[in-house]
Amino acid sequence: MPVLETTAIPQQLPSPVPTVGRGPSHALPTARELVHKTQPSEVLVTDAARLGEDRFAVAALWPHDHLLYQPVAGGAADPTLLVETARQAAAHISHRFYDVPLRGMPFVLTTFEADIDAPGLPHAHAGALPVLLDAVCTRTTVSPGRLGLAMEVTFHIGGLRRGRARLRWEVMGERRYAILRGRRCPTPPPTPLPPSAPALPLPPHVVGRRRAADVLLAPPPGAEPDAWRLVLDRGHPVYFDHESDHIPGMVLLEAMRQAAHAATFAASGPAGSWSPLSLAVSFELFGALDAPVTVHAHRSPDPEASGHADFHLTATQFDRTLVRARLRGAAPSRRHAAEEAPAC
């Protein structure tokens, strides 16, 4: 799976999004159902306009203060905002422009790639931050009761390009979805696993979060290095905003981001702050909500040779891989880490 390169964009580069006719409005959030959200505070997309047969301008607002999406090291916006905005744009476009019904047609996300342009995503310091997406869709599957789409989207903030994303998903009828889910679920072992003791989540700062309630990782029962046990709170207002019959893909992706941060923290200490600059994710199986999941993070050798810390990550259940990912972030300086390490 290729790592997406980050590219510095000249500050004078204008946004290429056409402005012919009425553009999308940033005035109010779109209907929650169009982006598969329950809580109004979780809706980022506000509107969309068709620019061509399969090209769309999508407007979004990034909140100044959010329960989960807080600024990362250096004051940049949380990169997860870019990922979630692209996911919401995909749902919005599917329903509004490709006539996908709001009920009875489950969505299945298969791949997601994203990269952030230097120097990072700006954070909304006062009020919400307007974001404009230029999205181009390609129909990959068209058959009765089934639609496959791929989307390439460019993010523009203040007239400047700030990031890109590519994702693929399928929409299908409930019967076809039930068959697919049955085929793509890990099979439990014939002998039930013994109940495990309640897991104590890692401290929030180790995984790059501010609240203990947002931590998704705990040490595994054994002493396996660079491995963590997934901890799910199905009452979390962001991770489980709406009902799901499997572990949501965004939860698995966030768990991998936290694992990369935890691995960096273990190697570099308090100065080991890490935030993704690019990612490539492939969703392979549906994860059962009531079975243990282990997240593994393997750091690529000699990451500081290129100034980046690259991680290959997997989430497994019953020894089957649910998702694979490759994440790249800036490698913390060893000298900086030594200077900021606490005295013994």
Rank of each mutant, 00 (worst) to 15 (best):
S275H: 09
A262F: 14
L232S: 06
A263S: 09
E254D: 15
H236P: 09
P276T: 06
G287S: 02
P219L: 07
V281N: 00
V231I: 06
P220S: 06
L285Q: 13
Q258A: 03
E284G: 07
L285I: 02
R234T: 07
E284F: 01
G249P: 07
M250P: 15
D245H: 08
F265Q: 02
M250C: 12
P221R: 05
P219R: 05
L217V: 11
A267S: 13
L217W: 09
F265C: 01
D290A: 12
S273L: 12
R257C: 09
P292W: 00
A227F: 02
P220G: 05
S275Q: 10
F240N: 09
P248W: 15
E224G: 09
S268V: 07
I247E: 02
F286A: 08
L232N: 08
S282M: 04
L230T: 09
P248Y: 15
V238Y: 05
A263H: 07
V281I: 11
L216R: 10
A266S: 13
P221Q: 08
G269E: 08
A271L: 04
P292H: 00
P292Y: 00
A267E: 14
V281W: 09
T264H: 06
L232K: 10
W274I: 00
Q258K: 07
G249F: 06
A255L: 05
V251A: 01
A223F: 07
S273A: 14
E284C: 09
M250A: 14
S275E: 02
P220C: 14
G269D: 01
L230E: 06
A223Q: 04
Q258I: 15
R234F: 11
P225S: 10
S244Y: 08
P276A: 01
V281Q: 01
P225M: 13
L252H: 01
D241A: 10
G272N: 09
L289N: 01
G249S: 11
H236K: 02
P248K: 15
H246R: 05
L253I: 15
A291E: 13
M250G: 11
A267F: 04
V251F: 07
V231Y: 00
Y239H: 15
H246K: 02
G269I: 02
A227S: 15
I247A: 01
D290M: 13
R257F: 10
L285K: 06
S278L: 04
V238Q: 05
R234H: 05
M256H: 05
H261D: 08
P292T: 11
A271E: 12
V251W: 07
A271F: 05
S278K: 13
S273P: 12
P221N: 06
R234D: 03
A227K: 11
E254F: 13
L217K: 10
S244L: 14
H261F: 12
P292A: 08
A291L: 13
R229Q: 10
R257S: 02
F286R: 00
L279M: 13
A280V: 04
D233C: 13
A260C: 14
D241E: 10
V231M: 02
A280R: 11
W228E: 06
L279Q: 07
E243D: 15
L216T: 14
A262C: 09
E284D: 12
D233S: 13
L216Q: 03
F240K: 10
A288Y: 11
G272I: 00
V238G: 04
L253F: 14
P292Q: 00
A259R: 04
S273H: 15
G222D: 15
A259Q: 07
A218D: 05
A255K: 09
L216G: 00
A259L: 04
